[in-house]
Amino acid sequence: MKRSHRTRARRSALAVTAFLLVAVTACGDDGDEEPSLLDGTVHIGAAFDQPGFSLHANHTDRGFEVDLAAHLGKELGFTVRFQDVPTGRREQELDQGAATLVIATYSITPAREKEVDFVGPYLNTQQGFLVRKNYNKIKKEKDVQDKLICTVEGSTSARADLPPRTTIREEADFSTCVSKLQQGNVDAVFTDEALLYGYVEQQKRSKVPLKVVPDVAFGLTNRYGIGLQKGHTEDCEKLLAAVRDYLNEEWANDIKTQLPALVDTYPGDWQNRFKPDTGDLNTYSSCKAPE
Rank of each mutant, 00 (worst) to 15 (best):
R112G: 08
E234K: 07
R81V: 13
T100A: 05
I103P: 01
T7I: 12
E75M: 03
L20A: 08
V186A: 06
L247I: 12
T109S: 14
D30A: 14
P35Y: 02
D49G: 14
Q83G: 14
Q83N: 10
H56V: 13
S286N: 10
D61I: 08
V119F: 03
D235L: 07
W251E: 05
Y224V: 06
N136D: 15
E291W: 03
D84A: 12
Q126S: 07
S175K: 06
V85F: 05
V263Q: 01
R8H: 09
N134E: 14
V213N: 10
S206N: 15
G227K: 10
A172L: 12
V42M: 09
V212Q: 12
K230G: 15
D187A: 03
G73P: 10
A69E: 09
F174C: 08
V216Y: 00
N136C: 01
K140Q: 15
R90N: 00
D29Y: 15
V263C: 11
D277T: 04
P35S: 12
P163T: 01
G45E: 03
D269L: 13
K139F: 03
D254G: 01
T109K: 05
C236Y: 02
R62S: 05
M1I: 07
G227T: 09
L101H: 01
R11L: 02
K74T: 06
C177D: 12
A26W: 13
Q202T: 08
H43T: 07
V66Q: 10
R273M: 08
N282A: 11
L196T: 09
L247A: 04
G77K: 08
F64S: 04
A261F: 02
R165H: 12
E91Q: 13
L195C: 04
F174R: 07
A172Y: 02
T283R: 08
D277R: 03
P35D: 02
V131K: 01
G97P: 07
V16L: 09
A252D: 05
T233W: 00
S107A: 12
A47Y: 06
A194V: 11
F118H: 10
L195I: 15
D215Y: 07
Y246F: 14
G88H: 03
P164Y: 05
L72N: 04
F218E: 07
W270G: 06
M1P: 05
